[in-house]
Amino acid sequence: MSIEVDPTAEISPLADIEPSRRGTRVVVGPDSVIDSFVKIKPAGGMGDVLIGARTVINAGCVIYSGNGVSIGNDVAVAANCVFASVNHEYHDKSRLIREQGFLPSRGGIVVEDDVWLGAGVILLDGAVVRKGAVVAAGSLVRGEVPSYGVAAGDPLTVKTWRQ
């Protein structure tokens, strides 16, 4: 795995970027901040983790590389968010779940530019958060949040729009 960190980015010495055995990449763009106790872990796929410019990922967030995670420019990720871009296979009850591998990709996770994810947001494989959107604290994102939408809950619904 290669870890490519722009020289202007700040990564806390208490962050943990785990090396990949599969050759996936972690790229952190210019002026981005990875706070204390952020964990980036390669798991269950060949996806890269790409973090754009001027993005802040706050304490306690976990990013599983899985089928890929792309976080754009100028994104604010509040504390304790989870990016889970892979799903375990579980259908065969005659086999242990851990022996069944993973389900096919739903496209990884994409977070476009100028997005705010509130504290404790969970994004699953196939989640797409479009430009300028806001996702309220504690929400679960499984599908698409439209550009400039302000979404909340589980099930996630658009409550209002940025003006």
Rank of each mutant, 00 (worst) to 15 (best):
H88A: 12
E89C: 02
E89R: 00
E89P: 02
Y90P: 08
Y90I: 10
H91D: 14
H91A: 15
D92Y: 08
D92K: 02
D92G: 04
K93V: 12
K93G: 08
K93R: 11
S94P: 09
S94I: 01
R95Y: 12
R95C: 09
R95Q: 15
R95G: 07
L96A: 15
I97H: 00
I97Y: 09
R98H: 11
R98D: 00
E99A: 00
E99L: 02
Q100G: 07
G101F: 04
G101K: 05
F102E: 02
L103K: 14
L103P: 07
P104V: 06
P104Y: 08
P104H: 07
P104E: 11
S105T: 15
S105W: 04
R106D: 09
G107F: 08
G107S: 12
G108Q: 04
I109T: 11
I109M: 10
I109D: 12
I109G: 10
V110H: 13
V110P: 01
V111R: 04
V111Y: 09
E112H: 08
E112Y: 07
E112V: 09
D113C: 12
D113W: 08
D113A: 14
D113G: 06
D114R: 13
D114Q: 07
V115L: 08
W116H: 06
G118Q: 05
G118C: 07
A119P: 08
A119S: 15
V121S: 01
V121Q: 06
I122V: 14
I122A: 11
I122Q: 10
I122H: 04
I122L: 15
I122F: 13
L123G: 05
L124N: 10
L124K: 13
D125Y: 00
D125W: 01
D125Q: 04
D125A: 03
D125V: 02
G126M: 00
G126W: 07
A127C: 13
A127H: 11
V128G: 06
V128R: 13
V128A: 09
V128M: 03
V129F: 15
R130L: 00
R130W: 06
K131R: 14
G132N: 14
A133C: 10
A133T: 05
A133D: 01
V134K: 06
V135N: 01
V135A: 08
V135E: 05
V135L: 00
A136Y: 02
A136V: 08
A136I: 05
A136K: 01
A137S: 14
A137G: 13
G138N: 10
G138I: 09
G138E: 06
G138M: 12
G138L: 11
S139M: 12
S139L: 09
S139K: 06
L140D: 05
L140I: 13
L140W: 12
L140F: 12
V141H: 13
V141N: 10
V141F: 14
V141D: 14
G143Q: 06
G143V: 06
E144P: 03
E144Q: 15
E144N: 11
E144T: 15
E144K: 09
V145Y: 12
V145C: 09
V145M: 12
P146E: 13
S147G: 10
S147Q: 06
S147E: 15
S147T: 11
Y148A: 06
Y148I: 00
Y148F: 15
Y148V: 07
V150K: 01
V150P: 03
A151W: 06
A151R: 02
A151H: 01
A151E: 03
